[in-house]
Design a protein around this nucleic acid. Structure first.
Lengths: 264, 264
DNA sequence: TAGTGGTCTAGACCACCAC
DNA sequence: TGGTGGTCTAGACCACTAC
């Protein structure tokens, strides 16, 4: 019997009988979770060799190709390392943050930088975005959007200034009104869009630049002159290749450090 | 007959008889090149639909899995877009730069920013690196390294200040001496290491931060106070998971813009 | 030489989308 | 309903590494 969940038509019809929590989880992603757990739990010690691909395939009763796909994911995340002809090893330092490669929750980002996360100064408004943002989101010139902005703190000090813009047409009138009145709703933007709007962000197009604090336009952003600011502008793309949100994030004074894995 | 090159034992023994240019090119990467060429040449117009995976598999006489792997690569590079149940399409805007995801040659990076690239002020020295760099490169406290530093220009103006450090033990005494005397050797660091040292950089661990110009230590870096600087520190990792080079790059005053594709 | 990861194949079944 | 991409399998052969 598979250690991974039954799949295909079976799990699908099972999901249909329980419409509350539809989820079709691929074998690969289940395997990723299982192997990741074993590493976190110390079943596979840092630098130790994992069972061979063939052995894992037999253990989980899946094909070797599936095992390889899962190992691929974990290797890309820096959790596993593969050596040709030798084996697959648990990475020596699994705690390395890899934040820029994937869109990360701000809370987790601050925790990864070893600080206590918090949020302050949450606001929202209904407005007509700038032409630049309108174009990014494919909006007409008369269309309105909801913008929420907030400040994330680390150990009480502000470290991330963030504004999110979502078109009213994307949210729908009801949700737009709700979000405007309760901007805390999208504390996790991804979760909010998935659970409330059925919109999945498949990837994010980002642009990284630097600026001086005095050139940054953000309420309450009162750093002294000359403070350098890392600026990340992002556009979230959904599974239909349509842009669904836009955000501007300011990281002043190097308080948050970003890691990045670059592959050829 | 395959449109892609013969492979496996055949191409291998062929390569052995011509040891001058050993190269074993996978079918997938050949397919990536072929499809990429067709897009660049306009055979597949922007937004147009490509032949189905099955059709491409037949055309190139390979399996559908191989076609999918190649399409994966091109989709990750933003050249193709896949829509479930519909087809694969050439991206509408193939010119989007994606520089931060993969280590990029500085020349190409400057060209991507629509400027004429150049190099100035090339120097090199033999030295004992700082403890930080020593640790990054796994060097002993007595080991020496070759550092080369240079300034890249866009339309004649300096835009990238870069220093590369490689341990003498990595290069070997002869090459280290040669590199110290002729720092232009590593104009393309990747090419130099592969062709001269047989070292392939499989991936790069980078750290992104910001700084003020006056805090940056680089010869000839004389920006006026308050200029913000994007700092990227990189460590190149070879196929044996060993760090082989370290570099520090300064991008002052937002003259180079970085794009980034973030995936969940 | 044995064991490992790397690559590729042929085929199967599924979900999704347009007609 | 038919065509498409998404997933998974079983098996084959290869190159690389260590013994």
């Amino acid at each position: 019997m598979n250690e991974v969940e039954e799949r295909g038509a079976n799990s699908n019809s099972a999901a249909r009988s329980k419409p509350a929590a539809i989820q079709r989880v691929s074998i690969v992603s289940q395997l990723v979770d299982l192997l990741g757990d074993r590493i976190r739990d110390g079943d596979y010690q840092p630098n130790s060799k994992l069972p061979s691909g063939e052995a894992l395939a037999q253990e989980f009763n899946v094909s070797r190709a599936t095992v390889r796909a899962a190992i691929n994911v974990l290797a890309t995340h820096g959790v596993l390392r593969r050596m040709n002809g030798v084996g697959v090893f648990a990475a020596p330092n699994p705690g390395v943050s890899n934040s820029l490669n994937e869109p990360t929750d701000f809370y987790r980002l601050i925790q990864q930088n070893n600080h206590q996360p918090g949020v302050e100064n949450i606001n929202s408004m209904l407005f007509k975005p700038s032409p630049t943002v309108r174009q990014e989101l494919g909006m007409g010139s008369a269309d309105e959007a909801v913008m929420t902005w907030k400040v994330f703190t680390a150990d009480g000090s502000p470290v991330i200034y963030c504004e999110n813009t979502i078109a009213v047409s994307t949210l729908g009138e009801t949700l737009a009104r709700e979000l405007k009145q309760t901007p805390t709703l999208n504390d996790s933007l991804f979760g909010f869009l998935e659970e409330r709007c059925g919109l999945t962000t498949s990837h994010v197009l980002a642009e990284i630049s630097v600026s001086r604090a005095e050139e940054c336009d953000f309420p309450g952003f009162d750093y002294s002159d000359g403070t350098p600011v890392l600026v990340i502008k992002e556009t979230g793309i959904d599974t239909n290749e349509k842009p669904i949100w836009h955000s501007v994030e300011l990281y002043p004074n190097n308080s948050i450090r970003f890691g990045l894995l670059r592959r050829r």
